[in-house]
Design a protein around this nucleic acid. Sequence first.
DNA 1: GTGGGTGCAAATACTTTGCAACCGA
DNA 2: TCGGTTGCAAAGTATTTGCACCCAC
Lengths: 131, 131
Amino acid sequence: MAGLKYSRQRESIRNCLCSREDHPTADMIYASIRQEYPNISLGTVYRNLSLLVETGEIRKITTDGADRFDATLTPHSHFICKSCGCVLDMMIPIEDPVAEVDRLWDEGDVEECRFEFRGVCKKCRKNKSQA
Amino acid sequence: MAGLKYSRQRESIRNCLCSREDHPTADMIYASIRQEYPNISLGTVYRNLSLLVETGEIRKITTDGADRFDATLTPHSHFICKSCGCVLDMMIPIEDPVAEVDRLWDEGDVEECRFEFRGVCKKCRKNKSQA
DNA sequence: GTGGGTGCAAATACTTTGCAACCGA
DNA sequence: TCGGTTGCAAAGTATTTGCACCCAC
């Protein structure tokens, strides 16, 4: 984990991710950063996102299609809209089942649990009822 | 959903998936079916897996890397090994939080919840301790 | 100066798709 | 026969990587 040098690009990616509420894909971040650094390359965005995931500064959310990234480290769940694909944070507290499951289950060391909810988001519901 | 005609290939894919305990990728299924039908193409495997997911006969599991498929429809959770990437079924009953969350949350209609556990599987734990 | 970081483009991994031939009802 | 299905290959999408140059320390 040593040998991490400062870079404007990485800093910018970090800031971008912290300042937005959605969970952008690498490409969305790329588009955003390009406004400040028109020469940044998509490869650099991917490289830095991977680095930040490794250091634990951000989280990667694997869904259908492109991966999404999240700078909110507070434990929370995600809601994935099956209609538009958006990802929403759910700060609703749900008792963490990790300890209990780790006790009951003999096949591996359980370290983390993610809840993933699927359904239709408010916007899509509204659009549907108008159509 | 009408107009689904029988095909040996689809039948074979269905059987393959039902007979194995792991959660194979399209490519693993392709390799397996090829022993019986050497001429089957990867495209056909993908097409049929999509069809079976649409009709609800199988489930798609999106993880890092290639998608995996699961013929077990009984509600259950998955354990994903961060070391070898294997996916294990966890039949441990966890109270379904969908209703409660749908009641509390105002941003969308919650229809489904998936628990996803991460950690290190038994095999990898063993290998690690031997090294 | 040195090693990590960058832009670029090529390569990779996974999945979808167009098309003509084929097959089940 | 008719329309769904297949094999093949090409295309598409998402991500990674090799390399020469650049910059922070």
